[in-house]
Structure formats: C-alpha cells, structure tokens
Design a protein around this nucleic acid. Structure first.
Length: 137
DNA sequence: GCCAACGTTGGC
DNA sequence: GCCAACGTTGGC
C-alpha cells in the first residue's frame, strides 16, 4: 500500500464536501508531476486531505477507491482523475506550522515541494502524522 | 498584497 | 536549445 497527500482549496472543494458526497472525483490536476502520482495510485492506497491557502492543515484521511481514469473536466490533453472516499477526519487537524515544527517531518514533500498538489508520503511519515491526528494508521 | 518557487510560452 | 517573460500556486 502506498501513501499520498492531496491538496484542495477549501473554498473550491472542502473536506466536508467529500464527506457529504461519499465518493469524490479528484479532478482538475494540471501538473505533470502530480499526474504521474495520480497514475501511480492503486485501489486501497491512503491519502491525506490537505486544505491549502485557507486552513493550511491536514483535515482527514481518504482511501483511493478508483484508479486513474480520464478527467472529464480537461478540455485538452490526457489528464486524469482518481476516485476517493473519506475514511476519517483528523482530530485534531495538523497544521503546516505543526509539520514544520516537527523535525521528523522535515523531509515531507509538503515542505520541500510546496507547490505540488499530489505528492507521495513515506510510510514513516504516514505513521507519525496519523498518530498526531488521532487516526489509526 | 507581496513574493518565492516553479512551470510554460514564445522569440531568437 | 536557450532564456526572458509571464502565469500560477501557495505561504506569509
């Protein structure tokens, strides 16, 4: 199983909307590195839901329930989306400032590649973050 | 509102 | 193929 972190601006698509929807389609990704990560996802992988811009915190955990397939919102180019399902909310959420304050998370892509919207998380990082957000890893 | 990082575009 | 200009993301 692989682990990921996916960003969404909460005024565009917040965690609460995914919870309400049940299953969500992660579309709109227009960056090649992010696309490669989407294509590497497999059913059963887990991902953190991160609110960018507003909140700047990890707010929940998702499961990948549908592997990469064509993104219908893409007007040109072969972009892809995946399907996700909310598993558990972060209680409490883990803010960007908290991540920065934890030396053991200093290598997270969240800090190193701050503009990448779909990024991998190592199993070690996954475990550490889960512990902090009250979610069973 | 500003700025750093970084991707994309277009002239040459 | 290089690089300047420009656009976008996202933190502060």
């Amino acid at each position: 199983m692989k682990y990921w972190l996916m960003k969404s601006e909460p005024d565009v698509y917040p965690w609460s909307k995914l919870v309400a929807d049940g299953i969500g389609h992660w579309d709109g990704v227009r960056n090649h590195t992010a696309k490669l990560n989407l294509m590497a996802m497999r059913k059963g992988d887990r991902a953190f839901f991160y609110h960018s811009n507003i909140g700047k915190e990890i707010v929940g955990v998702m499961e990948i329930v549908g592997e990469a397939h064509p993104d219908p919102t893409a007007e040109e180019g072969p972009w892809v989306q995946v399907s996700v399902k909310a598993l558990a909310p972060a209680d409490p959420p883990l803010g960007l400032a908290d991540v920065k304050a934890m030396p053991e998370l200093a290598q997270m892509a969240l800090l190193k590649y701050s503009r990448l919207s779909v990024q991998p998380v190592t199993p070690t990082e996954w475990k550490i973050v889960c512990k902090r957000i009250g979610v069973k890893a």
